[in-house]
Amino acid sequence: MRVLWLLLAAVLTALLGAASLVIGSREVPWTDVLAALQGSADNLNQAAVTKRIPRTVLALLAGAALGLAGAVMQGVTRNPLADPGILGVNMGASLAVAVGIAWFGMFSYTAFIWTAILGAAVTAVFVYAIGSLGRGGATPLKLALAGAATSAALVSFISAVVLPRADIAQSVRSWQIGGVGGAGFEGIGRMLPFLIAGAVICLLAARPLNSLALGDELAAGLGERVAVARAAAALGAVMLCGAVTAIAGPIGFVGLVVPHLCRLLIGVDHRWLLPFSALTGAALLTASDVAGRIIARPEELDVGIVTALVGAPFFIYIVRRQKVREL
C-alpha cells in the first residue's frame, strides 16, 4: 500500500515536471520540447523550453527539500504547525543574505548558501528559545507566535539594511518573495551538495524521530540520545531550508502542507514519511509554479505567493481541526 502511494507520487511528480516544461506564456508543441531536451535551441519554441529546464529542476529540488525539512521540523518540535516559513527560518536566511550583499559585497552562490544556512540556523534556535519559554514548553501556539514576531522583526531589519542601498534594492527584493523563475544551472549546481548532505542527515534521523514522537522521556528510555538526535535532525532541516532560500528565496507553507497530507496517506512512520514528503513536496512546488504561470498570464505569479495562497487556508484548516487544549 505504502509502496503504491510512493509510486503514485513519483509518477505525479514526473508528470508535473513535464507539464512545467510544456506550459508557459508560449504554447510549445511536444516535438519542440523533446528537441530542446536534447540540447537543440533552433527556434523560439525550443529556446523557451531550454529556459524552462533549470526552472523545473529547481522547483523539483526546492520542493523536495522544503517538504523534507518541514516533515523533520514537525517531528523535532512535535508540533503540527512547524514550517520553515511560519517559524521565520526562511526570513532569517533572507536577512543573512541581504546583509551579506549589502555590507560584505558578497556575490558568489556558495557564499550565499553558507550565509543563508547560518542565518536559518540562528533564527531557528532563537525562535525555538522564545517559543519554549514559560509554562507548557513549546506549544504550537507559542512557537507560531514567536516565529511570526521574529519574522516581523527580521523584515524590518531587511528594510533597514536595504534602504540606504538603492543599487542593490532590486536584487535583494527577490529574496523577499520566493520564486524559481530566475534559476540557472550554476546556482542549482552549487546548491546540490548542500541539499544532498541535508537530505542524508534528515533521512538518517528517521528512526530517532520515531522515538522522539513518543516524548523526550520515553525516547530516552528507549535508549535514544534525545539532545543529539534532535540537534542533528534540526541541522539537516536547517541546511535544506537555508540552501533553498539562498537560491530561490523564502518559500513558505510547502513544509507545512506536505507532511500533513503525507501523514494522512502513509501514516506516521518517519522512515516512510520523510521520502514521501520529499516527493510530494517536489510535486506541490512544481504544481504551484505551473499554476502561477497559468493564473496570471501573460505575466507570472511568483511561486512563493502561490504557495502562501494555497498554504495559509490549509494552515487555518489544521488550526480549526486541533482541539483547543492541544494548541
Binding site: L81, A148, G252, F253, A312, P313, F315, I316
Partner: peptide, 9 residues
C-alpha cells in the same frame, strides 16, 4: 493562530 495564517497570506 488563524490570525497568523491570514497574516502570512
Amino acid at each position: 493562530l488563524v490570525g497568523i495564517g491570514v497574516a502570512a497570506m
